[in-house]
Amino acid sequence: MINIKNLSHSLGGNLVLSGVNLQISDGTIMGLVGINGAGKSTLLRLLAGVYFANEGVIEYDGKSPENEETREDIFFLPDDPYFTNTSTVKSILNMYKQFYPALSLDTYNSLIDTFKLDENKPIRAFSKGMRRQAYIAIAISIKPKYLLLDEAFDGLDPLARKRVKDELIKMVEENNSTVIISSHSLRELEDFCDMYTIIDNKAVSSSGDISEKTNRYCKFMLAFNDSIPSDIFNGLPYVSITKSEKFVTGVFEGDENEIKKALLKLQPVVIEQLTVDFEEAFISEVSKNDKL
């Protein structure tokens, strides 16, 4: 289990994270969400032991990530991993193989074949997506107990994304690994993460089960015969509104039945409930805090 207590950290004199508290159970895939500059990458670097926290504690089963033994269980894949002009996928694999003896060559070979990567070709000659595929293949092959991925899906094509997701789920199921993955693509996280954490205003603004999160919001589309006044939803717990002349769509926070009853009082010609996805829930959450 990862336990983060009162974690605060500054970069260049600016407070980036303040009083972060979080518990992540083993065998969880957690999506780390936040607007640009929210502190997601900093949190991952602190978790990986690249940065040492100014304040607070990070514990992996009660042990610090500064501890060498703890780090044997952690693998961190940054958003833009470093490579030299001569680095090949194979040379990078060989480096990590020394430090992570559990690295599975079968998994690695299978992923490299799927991604159709030439492991002897210099990484500098790869496209951004191919580089990402190569590093993910190595990260998954290591089968760490704790895998920290920063913007892992960035640059991956849909097929590669699906394969990576499948492999991550398989790894979690087989090894009871914990995966923390930051992403801007919230829809990517929704279909395979168990848990989410929203970093906002330097702290965890919300964390929990993804389905519970989306269930907190409901979305309705209404159609009217006449033009719609701008204050139509006044008095209702709406978090976002999209309006044309005779159609209006709103995302609301609260019990969907109560909200529907209230909306019916507005006498729409048509009322239809739509599905709220995680991205809408996230946008609603952040908009509520005036961050967008």
Partner: peptide, 14 residues
């Protein structure tokens, strides 16, 4: 090099 530190500093070596 910051990018390189990301790939070196998390290794299980003090």
């Amino acid at each position: 090099n910051r990018r390189n530190l990301d790939t070196l500093m998390f290794l299980p070596v003090s």
